[in-house]
């Protein structure tokens, strides 16, 4: 399982990761402002650098797909167009997508974006440069980072590095690897000296993988279906029989 670790204390906010991503994914240059929410992501931008004010000092937080270990988007997808791969990257198959946009509703980080301007639109999001990492390369954003603030590697190794940095400089970091456990863990993780709650819809996501919430209801479907069918057949049969008996009785009485 591959992953990315971003160290917020090292990021200088140059935006080279965004440029690297733009070039590697062949996205149009410049910025398209329409349909773009305020975090800078859009159908034409898979990563962005958010500026956060920390007591008058700037902090830069790179937003991108978190590549959850148990992704809500993939569990929501009606046709399995979004799915996890052996590398840990959550990728999107254009050919299957029907455009229901349930993935966009399901993602707790609000990552998938839509090509609203197109008559034939697709969902767009970071793929962890799946084609590149499959051939042993690193994602374009990581390669572009001049400060080594965002690094790529095996998820376990990155976790070890993160914990090592926190242990060595406990005063410089919040003592937590963002993405280690939340919603079952993510492949893209952060260590930071500022809270990163704003990356998700709500702070404190909890450690339960989101697909569990759905599955709790969905696994009852066969039982409910059979139970309902059996109950209806039973009721039908009983009432039918009673009415027949009643009729027979009436006839015999007469």
């Amino acid at each position: 399982m591959k992953g990315i670790l971003t160290d917020i204390t090292k990021c200088v906010g140059c935006g080279k990761c965004v440029d690297g991503c733009t070039a590697a994914n062949d996205l149009p240059p410049g910025s398209v402002k329409q349909y773009q929410t305020r975090d800078g992501l859009s159908g034409e931008r898979f990563t962005s650098v958010l500026h956060v004010d920390k007591n008058g000092q700037n902090r830069f937080v790179r937003k991108q797909c978190r590549h959850c270990l148990e992704p809500a988007c993939a569990s929501a997808c009606i046709v399995g167009a979004l799915h996890t791969t052996e590398t840990g990257a959550v990728v999107y198959e254009e050919g299957k997508c029907i455009g229901c946009r349930y993935c966009m509703m399901a993602c707790p980080f609000g990552i998938p974006r839509y090509e609203w301007a197109e008559a034939i639109p697709y969902v767009r999001k970071c793929s962890l440069c799946y084609e590149r990492i499959k051939q042993g390369g690193a994602p374009a954003c990581v390669e572009a980072c001049p400060e080594k603030a965002t690094i790529f590697g095996e998820r376990d190794e990155l976790l070890a590095i993160a914990k090592d940095r926190i242990d060595k400089h406990p005063d410089q970091y919040i003592g937590k690897v963002f993405g280690e456990k939340e919603i079952g863990g993510t492949s893209v993780m952060y260590i930071s000296d500022i809270p990163l709650d704003f990356l998700a819809w709500k702070p404190d996501l909890g450690d339960n993988p989101l697909p569990q919430y759905t599955w709790a209801a969905l696994n009852k479907v066969p039982g409910v279906a059979l139970g309902m069918a059996a109950a209806m057949t039973g009721i039908y049969w009983i009432i039918e029989r009673r009415m027949k008996l009643q009729e027979e009785q009436e006839e015999s009485n007469a």
Partner: peptide
């Protein structure tokens, strides 16, 4: 649907973890 002509896709691409 963004791609309405693919409304039938659910009949061949099965993803039984999806409520949809």
């Amino acid at each position: 649907l963004g791609l309405p002509w693919r409304i039938w896709h659910a009949t061949i691409f099965w993803q039984h973890h999806s409520v949809l």
